[in-house]
Simulated scan of single mutants.
Amino acid sequence: MTVGPLPELSEAERQLITLVAQGNSASQIAIAPGSSKDTEAAREAIQALFAKTGTRTAPHLAAWATAHRIVTEPVRPTGALSVKPQLPPRLAQILRGWSGGRTTPELTADFGISPTTMRSYIKTLFTYLGVDSQPQAGVVGVLAGLVRLSDIDPSWPAEPLAAAVGSGAAR
Rank of each mutant, 00 (worst) to 15 (best):
T108A: 09
F126M: 11
Q93T: 15
E106R: 13
Q136P: 01
V140I: 09
M118Y: 04
V83T: 14
D38K: 10
S114F: 05
W156R: 02
D132M: 10
V165Q: 11
G101Y: 04
D151T: 12
G34H: 03
G79C: 01
R14D: 01
P157N: 14
P59M: 01
T104H: 03
A30L: 11
V139C: 07
S36N: 13
L161M: 11
A42T: 05
K123W: 00
Q47K: 14
A62E: 05
F50T: 05
L129K: 12
K37E: 15
A30Y: 10
I46M: 13
E106N: 09
G145V: 10
Y128P: 03
A162V: 10
P88A: 11
T66R: 10
I113K: 06
V147D: 06
E44P: 00
S27V: 12
K84G: 06
F111V: 01
T104I: 13
P105W: 02
A162F: 00
E73P: 00
L161E: 11
I70T: 05
R90P: 07
P5Y: 13
K123G: 08
P157G: 15
P88C: 07
S99T: 09
P85D: 09
P160G: 05
G23A: 08
Q86P: 02
G4D: 13
R96E: 14
F111D: 05
V165L: 06
Q136W: 04
Q28T: 09
V71D: 06
S150G: 10
S25T: 15
T72V: 15
T39M: 15
P5M: 14
A162W: 00
M1R: 11
R119L: 00
T18F: 01
L49S: 05
F50L: 09
P105I: 00
N24P: 00
I17S: 03
Y128G: 04
V20Q: 02
P105L: 01
A48H: 11
A169K: 03
T18L: 06
H68D: 02
R102W: 10
P85F: 12
G141T: 07
T57K: 07
S155E: 15
L125W: 04
V75W: 08
G23M: 07
H60P: 05
T104M: 12
A30Q: 12
L107R: 10
L129G: 04
T57R: 04
A67N: 14
T72F: 09
A42Q: 04
A92R: 13
T124N: 11
G101K: 02
G97D: 09
W98F: 10
G141N: 06
S120P: 00
G166H: 08
T39S: 13
S99M: 05
Q22N: 04
Q47P: 01
T2S: 15
P105R: 01
K84V: 11
V71Q: 06
P154L: 12
W64I: 03
D110S: 13
W98V: 07
P33E: 14
A51E: 14
